[in-house]
């Protein structure tokens, strides 16, 4: 055990993990966090707190994570390279660890162009793989990025990374994942998966490389709320692969039942994920629809969550 977080324990015990996600508000309002947290509490093993997701300014990931700790939910903080250089990142991680946060997802971050401050300077001092390596060095070698030793308590995180199996070049993606794992990723959460056959092909290659034995792979899933949202993701979100049959299924039901069908569809995908070799869990991203998470996991047969 590296940090003995709930998520690490679940995965180490060989059980199929389920994580959730909570998007912080574009305000200083605490109440909304409590409301969303209540919808997730007990249904997932850990909750990711996004970091200025899609480059839109929101309450900081570490602050919200701290609040979740108080509520009794295990948080996974996200950290992007877009907004901070190596000094800021290390400083924040020292603090996060001190506050008791144990899971960390390392990301490059969406480009600022897509957010609400498109003229901001992007930092990108590090890339996500360098970030993973840096966090591992902090934890396992007690060294800062400059090689300087940490004299007393080092920050310890269960290190996560992301991967998008649907981005190009497809052939390189498994190797890039392997590189992230070699750099120190303990777990991986993937981009939202709707194209299951393509994901299976990706996983086959990952398994062939033996990457699944060195880290836990959590397939990213999420319910589709409306046909409009499906089309938007299909056409306008870089790196998303939404096949036509996914949309066709939602179109096949009366309009008022689309949400329900989206939840069912998500649960069906989760069931498929459980059968794919090398997949160790799912990461459910119900964006601004936290209410759906419990139902999805229920339908997938992943409730109740184990206690380890």
């Amino acid at each position: 055990m590296k940090v003995s977080s709930n998520l690490e324990r679940i995965l180490t015990s060989g059980q199929f993990a389920a994580t959730g996600e909570l998007g912080p508000p574009k305000s200083a309002e605490a109440e909304v966090i409590h409301r969303k947290a209540a919808l997730l509490k007990g249904y997932v093993d850990a909750v990711n707190i996004t970091d200025n997701q899609t480059a839109i300014v929101r309450m900081s990931s570490i602050s919200v994570a701290t609040m979740l700790l108080g509520i009794g939910i295990e948080p996974t903080i996200q950290m992007t390279c877009r907004d901070r250089n190596r000094l800021a990142i290390q400083a924040d991680l020292l603090g996060a660890s001190a506050l008791g946060i144990k899971n960390l997802l390392c990301l490059t971050g969406d480009h600022q162009k897509f957010g609400n401050h498109p003229t901001a300077r992007g930092v990108y001092d590090l890339d996500s793989i360098q970030l993973v390596a840096m966090v591992k060095a902090l934890r396992d070698e007690k060294k800062f990025a400059n090689g300087e030793a940490i004299d007393t308590v080092e920050p310890r995180f269960f290190i996560g990374a992301a991967e998008n199996p649907f981005a190009d070049p497809f052939d390189y993606r498994p190797y890039r994942l392997a590189k992230k794992v070699a750099a120190g990723a303990d777990f991986v959460q993937t981009q939202l998966i709707y194209n299951v056959p393509k994901f299976k092909e990706f996983m086959k290659r990952v398994v062939d490389l033996g990457v699944h034995e060195k880290c836990s792979i959590l397939a990213g899933v999420g319910p589709i709320k409306s046909i409009g949202m499906a089309r938007y993701m299909q056409n306008s979100v870089p790196g998303m692969d939404v096949p036509e049959d996914i949309i066709a299924r939602l179109k096949g039901v009366p309009k008022e039942q689309v949400r329900k069908e989206g939840i069912k569809q998500c649960a069906d995908i989760i069931r498929e994920m459980r059968e794919i070799p090398g997949v160790h869990g799912v990461h459910v991203m119900a964006i601004e629809w936290e209410e759906a998470v419990a139902e999805i996991l229920e339908l997938s047969g992943l409730l109740p969550r184990p206690r380890v």
Partner: peptide, 16 residues
Amino acid sequence: CAKNLLNGPCGGSQRG
């Protein structure tokens, strides 16, 4: 590269 990445393409790389 818009993000100065040094270890491969980000998840936004599509069709080159």
